[in-house]
Each structure stands twice: as C-alpha cells, then as structure tokens.
Amino acid sequence: MIKVLFVCLGNICRSPIAEATFREIVKQKGLADKIECDSAGTAGYHIGQLPDHRTMKNAEKHGLKLTHKGRKISLTDLDDFNHIVVMDEQNFEDVYELYYKTKHQPPAAEKVFLLRDHDPETRGIKEVPDPYYESEPFFEEVYQIVWRSNEVLVEHLIDKYHLLATD
C-alpha cells in the first residue's frame, strides 16, 4: 500500500481538500486498494475540528464530502507515509526540520516535496496559496490548483510504483 500525507499549517483548508481530491482521483483510476492518503497540519490549532466551512462548501460544489478532522503531523507519520506532500515553503521547512531532527539525515526528494512540484500550470509559483484569510472565490482557485497537481501526482505514482488499476 502506497501512503501519501498532505500537510499544511492548520489542516483545515489546503491539506484536507488536497487529501479529498487525491482520494477521488485514486478512486476514479481504480487504485483505492493500492494508494491511500491522509492529511495533517504542522500546527495544532485545529485538532479534532472539521475543515473550514468554506473549504467544505467548495468541496461539496465539486461532489466531495469532507469528514476529515484536523490533526497535527506526528513523528510516526515520518515512517508511516511513503510521501509527505506539503502545500507551501514554510510548512515544507517545518516538515523537513522535523524529519532531519528525528532521522538525523535529510529526507529524500521523493519523500518530502511540495504539491505544486506536480502542477502543470505552476508558472514558477511553488506554493498552494492559503485561502484562510481570503474570500470564497479564492477557495475555488485552491481547489483547481490541488486537483490538477494531484492528477499529475497520481500519474507519477502509477509510473513510479508500476501500478495497474483493479479490474
């Protein structure tokens, strides 16, 4: 089983929608028995809470129901997940530092990376913008970014692990 963890700051906006879109793409490709995912935050601000209501509203508009409850990334996540996919540079640094302090070596580029490393429309921008302090239309922009990035990420994992859909 390939395990992917999506990480942002509070685990209520970007990482839950990244988790949900990734899960949907994996399901559509018939790979739910081969790839699983979760999400977490680098901060513990929203542990146990559902995602931001605007994230949930946007997800529902696209046929996704979010039930994830916020949690903070743990030391066991570093071993439990094959890939830790981070939304922005600051949280990438936080995850990288946590990994380095725990493992006494830097993570491999395939272990910890930015989601937009897989965005076909990145235009040099490497971060998924945080919509928390923005209006509802900004949540749609974030959805579009994570959807297209996850489409490419899933294809990358299919190639990397030589995965075939279940017939």
Rank of each mutant, 00 (worst) to 15 (best):
A165M: 00
P137C: 01
R148G: 01
H68F: 15
R14K: 11
P51H: 00
Q49V: 01
E97C: 08
I158W: 03
E36C: 10
Y133K: 11
K103W: 00
Y161I: 00
K3W: 08
L98V: 07
E155H: 01
R14M: 07
Q49C: 12
L5W: 11
H162Y: 06
S15R: 10
R71Q: 07
E89S: 12
A40H: 11
I12W: 00
C8G: 08
K69S: 11
G124P: 11
K65F: 13
D88H: 06
N11S: 09
K69N: 10
Q90N: 14
K72G: 08
I73W: 11
L9S: 11
L64I: 10
G30V: 03
K65L: 13
P120I: 04
Y161R: 02
I2V: 15
G41R: 11
I25G: 05
A108M: 12
L66K: 00
N58R: 15
K57E: 15
V4D: 02
K3S: 15
I73G: 03
D117G: 13
K27I: 08
E60W: 12
H68Y: 12
L164C: 04
I17T: 13
D33E: 13
P137T: 01
G41W: 12
K61W: 12
S149Y: 04
T42Y: 08
W147C: 10
I145Q: 07
K29V: 00
R23Q: 13
E110A: 12
V146W: 05
L5A: 04
L163S: 02
E110S: 13
E110F: 07
D167K: 10
F81Q: 03
F6R: 11
V154T: 08
G124E: 03
L157W: 04
R148C: 02
V95P: 00
C37G: 05
W147I: 10
M1R: 07
Q49S: 15
T55D: 01
R71C: 05
V7R: 08
Y143H: 13
E24G: 01
Y132D: 06
